[in-house]
């Protein structure tokens, strides 16, 4: 069983590596972006798909990673390596604080509390306009974006860096959900009362899930800023909290591979339909409605339901 799980996920990484050599420049660039955003979706999925907590505020973690990386890099010149670490730590710290407060609630109240914290983070970015330049954001120079000697603005290095991060997040979560602790998370999702009766400390497990989820999302945000050279408040806006939910639901909540396909699907849905008509949102909207009607579990979820019951 483990062999075919490894084969599937390793296979995806191998295919993505092969595509690095095959894809034309445009799709090559797109896929790099999709992989970074897929990390964001994977982070979201840890909390939503595996722990059953629906957050509407993950943009704050993405933004914490992005600004936690970008501001020290730009203003203190600490170098991309340390800055990336600072981004991770910012997101983790924020996730810890938010988790401690928000986990007092559940269900819809959890949605609103995370939404509100995220909105406060967004407004704080605007309030600190002296450094963040508010909505306009900060451009990171090419010279700043050198990571262990690698120029991240180079398309090849960018793609491979995105792939490395994606592979890391993918296998990290794959490992996590197969750990006893990961299985407790799934048990909480299915029935937290029963999990509690079995003697598990639900709060600590949930808190760990929030921190892991927030940190992975922050890693995606930090990587996005480093790879594409821009740090802006738009990424903290509410639609960037809705996107990972949408991606994960489309790809298949509670599957390791699903978030990637959700992001990929959504990206090309917009990109291709905007080539056909200026009313691409109409096409996107209709596609979403049809997909919920005919693939209720999301892409990977349907696959698991129909063919591959072993899909993690």
């Amino acid at each position: 069983m483990t062999a075919r799980v490894l084969a599937l996920h390793g296979g995806l990484i191998a295919v993505l590596l092969a595509l690095h050599f095959l894809l034309p420049a445009y799709h090559h660039g797109n896929l790099a972006r999709v992989m970074v955003l897929a990390c964001y979706a994977i982070g979201y999925n840890v909390l939503f798909g595996y722990t059953g907590l629906l957050s509407l505020g993950h943009a704050m973690f993405f933004a914490a990673g992005m600004y936690g990386m970008g501001l020290p890099l730009h203003f203190l010149g600490i170098g991309a390596e340390l800055a990336f670490l600072a981004g991770l730590l910012s997101a983790a710290a924020l996730a810890l604080v938010v988790g401690l407060l928000a986990l007092r609630t559940a269900g819809v109240a959890f949605m609103i509390v995370t939404l509100m914290f995220s909105e406060a983070v967004y407004l704080t970015i605007l309030l600190a306009g002296k450094w963040t330049r508010g909505d306009e954001g900060v451009v990171l120079e090419r010279a700043e974006r050198v990571f262990f000697g690698l120029d991240l603005s180079d398309p090849d290095i960018r793609y491979l860096a995105a792939l490395a991060l994606f592979a890391l997040c993918l296998f990290l979560t794959l490992w996590l959900v197969r750990q006893p602790a990961g299985r407790v998370l799934i048990a909480i999702r299915e029935n937290d009362e029963r999990a509690r009766l079995l003697g598990y400390d639900i709060f600590r497990h949930k808190l760990a899930a929030v921190v892991i989820s927030g940190t992975i999302s922050g890693a995606a945000g930090a990587a996005y800023g480093l790879l594409f050279g821009y740090v802006g408040a738009t990424f903290a806006e509410v639609q960037y909290s809705i996107f990972p939910l949408l991606w994960v639901l489309l790809g298949g909540a509670g599957t390791i591979i699903g978030p990637f396909f959700g992001v990929l699907f959504m990206f090309y849905l917009i990109d291709l339909s905007s080539g056909i008509t200026s009313a691409y949102m109409l096409i996107a909207g209709i596609a979403l409605v049809l997909l919920t009607l005919f693939a209720p579990q999301g892409l990977a979820g349907e696959l698991r339901r129909r063919r591959m019951r072993w899909l993690p």
Binding site: D135, F228, G229, Y230, T234
Partner: peptide, 14 residues
């Protein structure tokens, strides 16, 4: 819009 300029210009440069 200036935030779109700021987000896009680095890529145009690269």
């Amino acid at each position: 819009f200036s935030h779109v300029v700021m987000g896009s210009a680095p890529r145009a440069g690269e």
